[in-house]
Design a protein around this nucleic acid. Sequence first.
DNA 1: TTGAAAATGACAAAACGCTGACAGACCCGA
DNA 2: TCGGGTCTGTCAGCGTTTTGTCATTTTCAA
Lengths: 223, 223
Amino acid sequence: MRILLVEDDQRIRQDVTTALEAAGFVVDAEANGEEGWFLGDTETYAAAILDLGLPGMDGLTVLKRWRAEGRDFPVLVLTARGAWAERVEGIDAGADDYLPKPFRMEELVARLRAIIRRSGGQANPVVIVGETELDTRQMRLTVRGVPVNLSPQEYRLVAYLMLHKGRVVPQQELSEHLQSVHFERESNAVEVLVGRVRRKLPTALIETRRGFGYIVNEPDGSS
Amino acid sequence: MRILLVEDDQRIRQDVTTALEAAGFVVDAEANGEEGWFLGDTETYAAAILDLGLPGMDGLTVLKRWRAEGRDFPVLVLTARGAWAERVEGIDAGADDYLPKPFRMEELVARLRAIIRRSGGQANPVVIVGETELDTRQMRLTVRGVPVNLSPQEYRLVAYLMLHKGRVVPQQELSEHLQSVHFERESNAVEVLVGRVRRKLPTALIETRRGFGYIVNEPDGSS
DNA sequence: TTGAAAATGACAAAACGCTGACAGACCCGA
DNA sequence: TCGGGTCTGTCAGCGTTTTGTCATTTTCAA
């Protein structure tokens, strides 16, 4: 389930991204209004989270344009505390729900799930690839129904790859997502991690694309 | 189960808080309307108890604002004796029930439970996981029909986990829900609590997901 | 064939959660 | 009001798991 997040505050963007990914969503995070609008216009999302105060293009404008073009994915609007006018405008512009800052991550996730469900999509917390099943609610990976005992880091790795299945994920992207502020120069931490995960899995889930990164794919699929 | 109480009368506020805590709720008590509104707007509550005559911001206004923003937790309104007009207004503004002062604490608690249940939050007062049964009405946990003697805090822990069964609950979320005043600091209070509960239970109900949190699951269940 | 990329095994430090002990707060009955 | 019991958070210690690094070997694509 792919979510578009448009939020200029670096800190909030990071926190929300982390929380959503932990909740099993795939997140495209964007700081700039113009860029965000473009993504929402060209990509397919289950929902969008939109901050109203944005550089580039104002959040309200972004929302209005989407709606004007017939993009009907649900949109959750983030507003500053007490900004009544904004909220009303947001609803008028076609927002499905709004959340005043500051908010709790837990609530954000709950509301997001709510609007997705309401919109007919289903916020399914389970990702299936071949015989492997990832349950993001239970944070558990099972192969042929048998649970696999993974360490936190290992779980995050598999979860990230599975949530991005069908796409080659560069090593650097992985290491960025596995530890927030952890840019290494020459570390093979990811390789070691992949190795450990593979040893625990009875099937060949993670494929290596030498020189590019790793990918999790449907058994038949190709890319 | 967390309740917001907005009531300016110091005495009543104290009494109600005591009664609710005795009934197993976690209470955030607030005297000022503005502050109460803010809390209801930003925090997550199972229900709110709202006095209509408030300093700062009138109770009705508080309620209307919550509803205008889509806060749909149930609200129990306290009114002065014989103030019929107020009650009608309260209902119109989105109150779920009202209680004229003076009232008996038992009745307050009963009505509060009623509106929480009615709100669909927890329609069923009984949650069953394997051989363990949680009766939220009696605030009792039984295993194979045998009641388990739990302290209030221990009960809340088990109740929260059981009400969220099948989902990994992070430690932080637990401590947020177990304490009305939440001090963000590193403490192993939750771990200690979990340990105490486990010692009292004959079965392995609470599972640890190292690095993530705790989870209560159906014995066989995987989804 | 060859050199870079990836996999592997070993290791030590760090992180994490569990436990027992303890002390202050609180409650209740005498 | 006093005294004992309960509840709850803190702390330090402990064992286990986790994780990054390094050295080395293997693999792969040009």
